[in-house]
Computed example of a mutant assay.
Amino acid sequence: MKVLVTPTSLCRQPDSAALESLRRAVGEVVLNPFGRPMTESELIDALPGVDGVIAGLDDYSADALAAADRLRVVARYGVGTNNVDLDAARARGIVVTRTPGANALAVAELAVGLTFAVARGIPRLDAAVRAGDWPRGEGRELTGGVFGVVGFGAIGRLVAERARGIGMTPIAYDPMLPDEVFAAAGVERCDLDDLCRRSDVLSLHVPLLPETRHLLDERRLALLPADAIVVNTARGGLIDEAAARAALDAGRIYGVAIDAYETEPPSASPLVGHPRVVSTPHSGGHTREAVARMSEQSIDDLITVLRGEASPNAVSSPL
């Protein structure tokens, strides 16, 4: 069998134990040679003859999947599936799996770290000292504030726990979960507009779907307190980046931390480079520990499906 592996963090270590175990199980393993997510056209060239894919953030469109003459499984190396056309996969008999929870802790820790980075201007101060300057730092404290969590799944709940640990009061919005989940976590449930009005920090942890695109738009940005910090470690497109830039320029919000962009790499993002924006390269899940968990789980899922067995992590199965 032949398997294509595309996640950049996994391909950087071609002789890793995870990839060696995959080679022993399937035979031929082909690695993404580009050092970035593969485009639709690159996948169209690469997928013929491939039985399974360990998939990063590549564009598995209907056209790309149509080029796959033997493909049986796309095992997502991560939790999001918005880059995979699930209907097309289902119609072609391709199972799609994901790795829920494998990178939750890593993303949660980055979200909290980015909050501090914006509040205290840490990247700017670091750059100044490296350049030989000695500026007077100016920032704001987080203790005593309200931390709003949009999306109360595994990552959102971990973020809420850590927000409480730094002396903030977490509140959350998630229309998909029952009240019992919020009660068990000791976190107040709010509707989205109320959460925006009350949040000194607002952190996004929802998938990108048609109904969540630009979830934080001009109207909702205007609801935020004037000193609010917005954090996006989830998916690009959840924030209207042009509206967020306008809110920053007008002084309506304090700052933005962003790890996921509407277009990646974000060469045209209006947020990148702004003095009150902290930008990271979609690296929320990229800790050594999370990479190991995602590698193991996605490879296990792929091998399970190729053996003709059902994966508990399947999000799309053949019709």
Rank of each mutant, 00 (worst) to 15 (best):
A314H: 09
G273T: 09
L31A: 08
G137T: 10
V256S: 02
A62Y: 11
A67M: 10
V150K: 00
E180A: 14
G121Y: 02
M294S: 05
V53Y: 02
P33G: 07
E161W: 14
A55E: 01
V149F: 04
A131C: 12
A75P: 02
E296V: 08
A242M: 12
D193W: 06
P318K: 09
A292F: 12
G148R: 01
L248K: 01
R36N: 05
L31V: 07
E138Q: 15
L114M: 14
S269F: 10
V3F: 05
L65Q: 02
V149Y: 00
D63S: 15
G237K: 04
G78A: 09
R307H: 14
S316L: 10
P312G: 15
P175G: 10
V187K: 00
R198W: 06
R235A: 06
L125Q: 13
A244H: 02
A228D: 02
Q13Y: 15
T263M: 14
A25P: 03
L306H: 02
I155Q: 00
A154M: 14
R197C: 07
R24K: 15
A257C: 11
A127D: 12
H274C: 06
V107S: 03
G308I: 07
P178E: 08
T233L: 10
G139N: 10
L177V: 12
L306A: 03
V291A: 06
M168F: 12
L224W: 01
V278M: 04
D59Y: 14
T97H: 06
D133S: 14
I166G: 04
L43Y: 04
G101V: 06
A228P: 06
F116S: 10
L271T: 04
R120I: 10
V201T: 03
A117P: 01
L86K: 06
L114R: 00
L221W: 05
A234K: 01
N313R: 13
G153L: 02
L31C: 08
D217S: 13
A67K: 08
S311M: 03
V305A: 03
V118T: 06
H282V: 08
T304F: 10
P175C: 09
A117M: 13
S61H: 03
L22G: 02
A226Q: 15
D240M: 04
A243I: 09
R23N: 08
D301Q: 07
R219G: 14
V277D: 00
R252K: 14
A64W: 03
T39P: 05
P312F: 12
R12C: 13
